[in-house]
């Protein structure tokens, strides 16, 4: 397999992980988002220039799709989708048995979305700050301040809720 193919597969794996984290571990929604993003990527493949940053290109597409989805959902009444609830129920619970993981999950969930995005893109997906800035269409200073606020908020929550999480390993 060529280097190119491996890259694409790794990037798509990373998209799926990011979508899952962004959408609060809702598997069905995350799959929808990734599929929609890939569909758009296929349609726009011509706009991708060989040799440029494939990963950033894919993440930007996914981000734009997500923004549009949020916008169109906001104009519709809130509904509880049975499938959504089910997909949450079938999410493997085992990994969250560790207390600190559960707390981390909750702390991240409670972040404002703009902060959550930056934290996930940087810490989970390892994107460069300037890539995140370009993707979100904000100055890099904004990326840094969101990142800083997100990390401090999570830190405060983990410290409050027992403090087990961060000190456990000492």
């Amino acid at each position: 397999m060529s280097k190119f193919g491996v890259d694409l597969e790794v990037h798509i794996a990373s998209l799926r992980r990011y979508a899952r984290a962004l959408l609060r571990n809702n598997r069905a929604d995350a799959e929808d988002l990734v599929q929609e993003a890939l569909t758009r990527a296929v349609a726009r493949a011509d706009s991708f220039q060989a040799g440029t940053n494939l990963r950033a290109w894919l993440f930007t597409i996914l981000h734009n799709v997500h923004v549009n989805q949020v916008r169109s959902k906001a104009s519709r009444p809130v509904e509880v989708d049975v499938e959504d609830v089910e997909s949450k129920l079938v999410t493997p619970a085992r990994q969250e048995e560790r207390v600190e993981l559960r707390e981390m999950m909750r702390a991240v969930d409670e972040l404002p979305e703009e902060q959550r995005k930056v934290l996930l893109l940087v810490a989970l997906e390892g994107l460069k700050y300037d890539e995140v800035a370009e993707m979100l269409g904000v100055p890099i200073g904004t990326v840094m301040s969101r990142l800083s606020r997100a990390r401090e908020a999570v830190r405060a929550k983990l410290a409050n809720e027992g403090g087990v999480a961060l000190r456990r390993v000492k």
């Binding site: 694409l8 799926r16 992980r17 984290a21 599929q35 890939l38 990994q95 560790r98 993981l101 981390m104």
Partner: peptide, 27 residues
């Protein structure tokens, strides 16, 4: 750094899930 590690612990499992058929086809 611990936060980063916890995020990976939480979500790296997604990397192991097989893609849906639609996803695979699109990929």
């Amino acid at each position: 750094r611990t936060q980063t590690a916890l995020l990976h612990d939480l979500f790296d499992t997604v990397l192991r899930e097989p893609p849906t058929d639609e996803e695979q086809e699109l990929a």
